[in-house]
């Protein structure tokens, strides 16, 4: 990263000699990793994520273990309505942490080009979320074992579709962590960023679905293959929300929501990616062109 890395003599111009190549990208990543791993909140959110994943999956699998056609694998994703929220908040705390505390002053005087810091935050947030997600998925797998055992079902995770769902269960919460980080870096204030991200991922989809339910006449004859227009609009909006798009990674292909365009796994990943990249680009522009405050 450093333009001077190839010219060790450049440092001899000014006394006393400045040693080293300054803030290379690798060093900035090391610094950001030190930061994310030195806060209690990071570990607390990771622990809550793992605990919720294991406990909720266990309860859900147990509750449905009495069903005649019980498939323990079907309960694997049941905690996924909640587990991404912990990592979302973790991301927000990484993105806003510099500005909500004044740490940005020591950070940006050490790395005056600023953008490497943002990029390094993406890297360490993804890495921390990856580890947390892997453990959380492990907890979810453990969560279905008692229910499966009680019915004498052997859990086989090696099926192609199961593997894809497990991968989605790791990637989707990672994406939510990066979404939180991007919005946090853009808005710079934790309360604003948490409210914005939780509204977009949790509140808005629920409110929209309730509103559509109320707008739909329950007595109207249902036509197979089509849903009421209000319902279709809402379902489309929900599908394009960060959580809606992300959860497409964790459902079998072709099980899109009624009335909404079926984005599929890759489409869902793309929409979630856009939810990350657009605020990140905004944060980068703000970082480069405005005073650091």
């Amino acid at each position: 990263m450093s333009a001077s890395a190839s010219s060790p003599t450049a440092t001899s111009a000014r006394p006393p000699a400045v040693s080293g190549r300054g803030a290379t990208f690798g060093r900035v990543i090391a610094a950001e990793w030190t930061k994310i791993t030195s806060l209690r909140s990071s570990y607390l959110l990771a622990a809550v994520t793992v605990a919720v994943s294991g406990a909720l999956t266990y309860l859900s699998a147990n509750a449905s273990s009495g069903d005649p056609g019980f498939d323990p694998l079907g309960s694997l994703t049941s905690a996924l309505v909640l587990t991404p929220i912990g990592l979302l908040v973790l991301g927000v705390l990484v993105g806003t942490g510099e500005f909500s505390t004044g740490t940005y002053q020591s950070t940006f005087t050490a790395v005056p080009r600023r953008l490497p810091v943002l990029a390094a935050q993406v890297v360490v947030t993804a890495a921390f979320a990856l580890v947390t997600s892997l453990v959380a998925v492990g907890a979810a797998v453990l969560g279905i074992l008692p229910a499966a055992g009680s019915r004498g079902i052997t859990v086989d995770l090696t099926g192609e579709q199961t593997m894809q769902i497990l991968a989605g269960m790791v990637i989707y919460p990672m994406g939510m962590a990066l979404f939180g980080m991007a919005i946090g870096a853009l808005l710079r204030r934790p309360v604003r960023a948490v409210v914005t991200t939780v509204t977009l991922t949790l509140v808005l989809p629920i409110v929209l679905m309730l509103a559509a339910d109320m707008a739909t006449d329950p007595m109207a004859p249902s036509q197979p293959g089509s849903s009421p227009p209000a319902q279709a609009v809402v379902n489309t909006a929900v599908t394009f929300s960060p959580s809606g798009a992300g959860s497409l990674l964790t459902v079998p292909e072709g099980s899109g929501v009624e009335g909404a365009p079926d984005l599929g796994r890759w489409g869902g990943a793309g929409v979630l990616g856009a939810w990350i990249l657009l605020p990140l680009a905004g944060a980068a522009v703000r970082l480069r062109t405005r005073d650091a405050t």
Partner: peptide, 16 residues
């Protein structure tokens, strides 16, 4: 090139 090794800065005790 290496700002931390050229200039030491203390602006605000709350930059932590």
């Amino acid at each position: 090139v290496a700002p931390l090794q050229a200039v030491g800065v203390m602006l605000d005790a709350r930059s932590v």
